[in-house]
Amino acid sequence: MGSAATGLTFRDATDADVDALVVLIESAYRGDSSRVGWTTEADILDGQRTDPEGVLRVIKSPDSRLLMVESDGAVVACCQLEHRGDHAYFGMFAVSPALQGGGLGKVIIAEAERMARESWGAREMHMTVISVRDDLIAWYERRGYRRTGRMTPFPYGDERFGIPLRDDLRFELLVKELA
């Protein structure tokens, strides 16, 4: 799919982008709108995925970049890059549900990896994925990420991250060499 990258612009998010980003992230992961795409978490989590405060925190953090991806002036995706010494953390990745499955995600993650390498000299990219999301983990594995088996607990009881619909949620660390 060579067309996915056509007309895409990447830029750092600003305070003025917070509301649009919250709408994008919620649409990609929560509620019926997210079911249009394949990355929905609607079957495992209710409530919110993020909030304006959470997005603003990432924008303001000196070690983080929140990248906005736009096509023809519309926000189509975003992702967070955080500098953590010799590696970068990739998070807050959302692609507009209507555009999922068209190759856009591949283009964005490749650009994020390039930026982490070039900006910070990062040798690895780290991310955490809810461990029951086999389809999503398989997608990352096809991009060169490997499962580590290293788990961290899901923040049950903290509704800023959503309201879990099952009791076996946890995050698994995925890692990719960038060298």
Rank of each mutant, 00 (worst) to 15 (best):
S27M: 11
W38N: 09
I59N: 01
L173N: 04
Q100Y: 01
I163P: 04
R114C: 12
V18H: 03
G54P: 09
L45P: 08
G102M: 00
R49V: 05
A98K: 12
V23N: 12
I25Q: 10
V76F: 00
T14H: 11
A42G: 07
E118N: 08
S131T: 15
A5D: 02
G91N: 05
D63Y: 10
Q80K: 15
P153D: 08
P52G: 03
L174Q: 07
R166Q: 06
R35P: 13
A13F: 08
A28G: 02
L173I: 07
A42Y: 03
F90Q: 13
A74K: 15
G37L: 05
D43T: 15
D135R: 12
G121D: 03
V175T: 11
D51V: 07
A116K: 00
E172R: 04
S34T: 03
V22P: 01
A88W: 08
L174T: 03
I163M: 07
A77V: 00
G85A: 02
V18G: 04
A13R: 04
G162Y: 03
A94F: 01
M92L: 13
V18N: 07
G37I: 03
L173Q: 13
D158R: 11
D19M: 09
H126S: 08
R11F: 07
S34A: 09
R11V: 01
S3H: 05
R65Q: 10
I108H: 01
R160C: 05
K60I: 12
G37C: 07
V175I: 10
L104K: 00
L104R: 00
T6A: 06
L165M: 04
A88D: 10
F10D: 07
R57Y: 15
E177M: 14
M115Y: 10
V75Q: 04
S61R: 12
E53H: 10
E159I: 06
S61K: 12
D32Y: 15
P153K: 04
A5P: 05
I109H: 08
P62R: 01
S71W: 13
D135H: 15
S27K: 09
F154H: 05
S119F: 15
G105Q: 00
I130C: 06
R30P: 06
E111D: 13
V95D: 01
A20F: 06
L81S: 12
W139M: 02
Y89T: 09
G2R: 11
R35Y: 08
D12S: 09
R142H: 15
F10P: 07
G73M: 02
R142D: 13
T152E: 02
S96A: 12
L21N: 14
T50E: 00
T152R: 09
D17M: 02
I163L: 05
W38K: 09
I44L: 07
T40P: 08
R123N: 14
L45Y: 09
F161T: 11
